[in-house]
């Protein structure tokens, strides 16, 4: 029995040491426990309210304008259409960051007119940059594989030629959100991040027949901002087009009716589906643009309920004559104005 002479002293010091450390651990544990305490539990996922959003890029005080130009050369008719409204400078100012929302839905060659024609993308980007825009980006969420779509349609090359950047719809660029006053676009992934530092948005769509909605024009162009399994919205196609038009108020829209897809839309697939209507429309009122486009397709407004719904929601006017559209033509090299 050899007693340890220092044992009592040492033990007490060790004990106090442990006591202090135990005390600190207990306090830390209790603090963590009560800080994170959640008596209620998780809410139902579908009840989670996501951010309410509206994309408003319209220019205040500009009023509603529309121009309609006849001609074969897309770049030329586009230039004239803008010139008739006061030139690109009316819309794009120095330092603006512009986003072109194009239709790149299918991986088809440009001549089949299922997608936005690369010529007008190059021209628009060029004009914007000439007007002093700081940057121009081009984006869409295609139906087919994104990379192939942008390449095979020629849109990627068109953008690059003019110095614009293509933004492919990566997963992390989508944000789940609810559009303002929307019943359908609720807690839905939307291609939101490309818009983060943009201040001007131009919608560019070809004029097409569409089996489900009757026509695919500038309002339906915004469908390309939806992510997820967006096909479900086809169950209320006219409702969703109206909500898309409500969600996005662009600076202006371009409706390319140079070669219109008259039948078998939206994919078309044969040159026999196309007709050379040789028209370019630029408008700040997308409802009016679509209403005019309907006439070129040979559809009455009754056959396109989404136009009526959009008008009833106050998003524009279907009676495009009220806008006093300025008309012109590149072939005769003369322009006329309607009083």
């Amino acid at each position: 029995m050899i007693p340890n002479p220092n044992s009592d002293e040492l033990n007490r010091r060790q004990f106090l040491n442990r006591f202090a450390k135990a005390g600190i651990s207990i306090s830390a544990a209790c603090a963590a426990g009560f800080w994170f305490y959640d008596a209620k539990g998780p809410a139902a996922s579908i009840n989670k309210r996501s951010e309410i959003v509206q994309f408003d890029f319209s220019i205040e005080g500009l009023g509603q304008k529309m121009s309609i130009v006849q001609g074969e050369d897309r770049a030329a008719t586009l230039r004239m259409a803008l010139k008739l409204l006061g030139g690109i400078e009316t819309f794009i100012k120095k330092g603006d960051r512009v986003l072109l929302k194009v239709n790149a839905a299918f991986a088809t060659p440009a001549m089949l007119s299922a997608t936005t024609h690369p010529e007008i993308i190059t021209e628009m980007a060029r004009l914007c940059l000439k007007a002093g825009a700081a940057s121009v980006v081009v984006t869409d969420n295609p139906i087919n594989d994104p990379a192939s779509c942008f390449t095979l349609t020629g849109i990627a090359e068109a953008a690059r030629k003019a110095g614009a950047k293509v933004i492919l719809p990566r997963d992390d660029l989508f944000v789940t959100m609810t559009a303002k006053d929307a019943k359908l676009i609720q807690n839905w992934p939307v291609l939101y991040k490309p818009f983060a530092d943009i201040n001007k948005v131009i919608g560019m769509a070809p004029l097409k027949d569409h089996h489900r909605s009757g026509a695919s024009m500038t309002m339906k162009n915004w469908y390309g901002l939806l992510g997820g399994r967006r096909n479900i919205f086809h169950q209320d196609i006219h409702g969703i087009i109206m909500e898309l038009a409500k969600m996005v108020k662009p600076t202006f829209v371009v409706l390319d009716a140079t070669t219109t897809m008259m039948t078998n839309g939206p994919t078309g697939g044969s040159l026999s589906d196309l007709k050379n209507t040789h028209t370019m429309i630029v408008s700040t009122d997308q409802v009016a643009a679509d209403a005019f486009g309907a006439s070129l397709l040979g559809r009455s407004l009754d056959q396109l309920p989404f136009i009526g719904k959009a008008e009833a929601a106050g998003l524009g006017t279907a009676d495009y004559q009220k806008l006093n559209p300025v008309t012109g033509s590149t072939s005769t090299k003369s322009s006329s104005e309607q009083p």
């Binding site: 139902a44 579908i46 997820g228 399994r229 479900i232 209320d236």
Partner: peptide, 12 residues
């Protein structure tokens, strides 16, 4: 199923 919006069949 209600718990996953992505698995919805119907719009409403």
């Amino acid at each position: 199923e209600s718990r996953t919006r992505e698995h919805a069949l119907l719009l409403k």
